[in-house]
Design a protein around this nucleic acid. Structure first.
Lengths: 344, 344
DNA sequence: ACGATTCTAGAAAGCGTTTACCCTACGCGT
DNA sequence: ACGCGTAGGGTAAACGCTTTCTAGAATCGT
């Protein structure tokens, strides 16, 4: 097994100094054509590649963007990750992916790892449980990252104030929920069940809030019996509807906190002999790729997932001092399909 | 903005040498308790974290596992990635993710980047177009990675022979297709349409092969008219069925090369007024999370996605010389649901 | 023809760790 | 009392690159 060649080997073979090789490789400094050619031949000959760690140690950037999220398979996260990855390679960065599975300690751990790695940007994706000490801890993280020269981006997570050293890239969570609920309301529905997510999570609190505000805007009573919380799984949606039915709660429409819950809900409805959308209208959130494949095709709130990811990277990599604490909010829209019907 | 502290700052504050600090941090070398405490206090005081690049440069491992795949959102890849990420963090490694979108040049580029990064393992995921020069190029990659001290893993991609310096972790692609087709055959179906993937791709060639072998085992004629190729999208499945119908090809069952194609196919069938499974049985591949949510719930070939990913990492990180070129094959099974019905 | 620029390229000082090597002091067996 | 093994800790040499500083050669204006 050959040892991997270093820059000195290349320099020796080309008969120049290591400085010259380095300059040919980075291509910024003027180098005579003949010399450049010699060096390039040596590089090819030896199949030389630079050592990224040495380069990062010597220079100052690591060319790495870090992505921290709940998991990697939920479409919501996967699509944001896709946008991040896309823009990262566009900007010649590599993409480090870590998952927390909702564990705050793990998140702390990861941020430490990212400081070690000198990531150019650290992107925290998705909602979070805004606990008492979350802000304070997040502030320490942010400081640490700033000192390490990394940009912190909160993506799909609320800002922590304008003086907080982080970029925020949100989508209009509450607004999407408001539109969805309004859509149901203006179709004549008044008894709209909200199948919500875990309490305290910024994402699902916001969706619930949008639901509430829409009802209020239509002067419809917010009936607590219509609001259920669960995790975000298909099973949860299934059971939530079963419970509603078992409790004899009346409703003509369902607003589910995401498409998986909506799918489970529709399954429960079908199992109970109720037709969607004839008996009950259903609307989801996230507009996952399978939404159009359900029967009936699911109406859902569409999010600009990929653009969220792309914007996060773009802003983070943008140099200039004012850029370190921006806040952008992306819009949502409803993808209308067949799971909603006006109430006659 | 504070400069980030180095090990010398810690050493100075604790009144010891940098060597001692390093030893306290790695914890291998004996250090007196009092000294250790002093150092740890200084570390906390300064909020010091090691510089991963300096460590990687000095030591020899980068603690990074690289994952190269088609994209990040297709459930097939996402679940494998999930397994990789899981096992990587289990082994205290970070996980670098790159996508190729099917571009072989991009794959080459990425492997070079991974050599630069000194990744402990490079995992190439999923099928590939086995072109003439693929083998040769892959061989050069493999050599380069081996010299760089990285392990190469082919995951869900066929081995290139026992003397090829790479680990292979496959699932029984053809076997799964064989089972699926056999399931249809033993339910009495004889006219089974195969909605295949792109020609030349190892994954879809294998699935097609399993289909063929099953028909032959049942002594059923393989009718070329029943075999269509497309990309792997829902739309592709939809159009493939439309075409079959328009061409007046007779069939009582469909074997789709993945669940997305199956979903599109079912939609086309429904649009044409055909009932699944009363008129046509359908079976998918990959057993994506939405398969149970379709109407009817889709029978599909279940793959051990996460275990593929986990095994890839586990084998790659396992030290010992013989371990550098192993080959494991994982099994599949059919997840039976409601989209298949015996032909009466 | 001669000083002033402009190119080109080398020498060497870091970048922040780890680790091989060396040294001191102390306990212990004989 | 003496040699020795060992725990504890310091010194300095890598690790492989980038970049500043410096300097010779080539070009140019007058």
């Amino acid at each position: 097994m050959n040892k991997r060649p270093t820059i000195r080997d290349v320099a020796a073979m080309a008969g120049v100094s290591v400085a010259t090789v380095s300059r040919v490789l980075s291509g910024d400094y003027p180098v005579a054509n003949a010399t450049r050619t010699k060096v390039q031949r040596a590089v090819r000959e030896l199949d030389y590649v630079v050592n990224a760690h040495a380069r990062a140690l010597s220079g100052s950037t690591s060319n790495v963007v870090a992505l921290v999220m709940y998991d990697v398979v939920t479409p919501f996260f996967a699509f944001i990750a896709s946008g991040v990855e896309y823009q990262a390679t566009e900007s010649d960065r590599l993409c480090l992916v870590c998952t927390t599975h909702g564990d705050p300690d793990r998140e702390l751990e990861i941020v430490k790892l990212m400081r070690e790695q000198h990531a150019d940007a650290v992107i925290l994706v998705g909602g979070v449980n805004m606990s008492d000490d979350y802000r304070e801890r997040m502030y320490r993280y942010a400081k640490g990252l700033e000192d390490a020269g990394s940009r912190l981006v909160l993506c799909g997570r609320p800002s922590l104030g304008p003086d907080f050293p982080a970029i925020t890239v949100e989508y209009d969570n509450a607004g999407g929920a408001f539109s969805a609920t309004s859509h149901l309301l203006s179709s004549g529905h008044r008894r709209i069940a909200m199948l919500g997510g875990p309490i305290g999570n910024t994402t699902f609190d916001a969706r619930l809030d949008g639901y509430r505000r829409a009802l209020e805007a239509f002067r419809v009573h917010v009936d607590p019996k219509l609001i259920i919380h669960g995790d975000m799984s298909q099973e949860s949606g299934f059971r939530q509807v079963q419970r509603l039915l078992a409790d004899g709660v009346e409703f003509t429409a369902i607003f589910a906190a995401n498409d998986f819950v909506a799918a489970g809900a529709m399954r429960a409805l079908r199992a109970a002999g109720k037709s969607v959308p004839d008996d009950v209208s259903v609307i989801g959130y996230d507009d996952t790729p399978f939404a159009p494949e359900l029967t009936p095709a699911l109406t859902s709130v569409h999010l600009p997932h990929e653009e969220l990811g792309r914007t996060a990277v773009k802003l983070a990599l943008q140099r200039g001092e004012g850029s370190a604490r921006q806040h952008v909010m992306l819009g949502t829209h409803i993808a209308m399909r067949d799971s909603v019907r006006p109430l006659i």
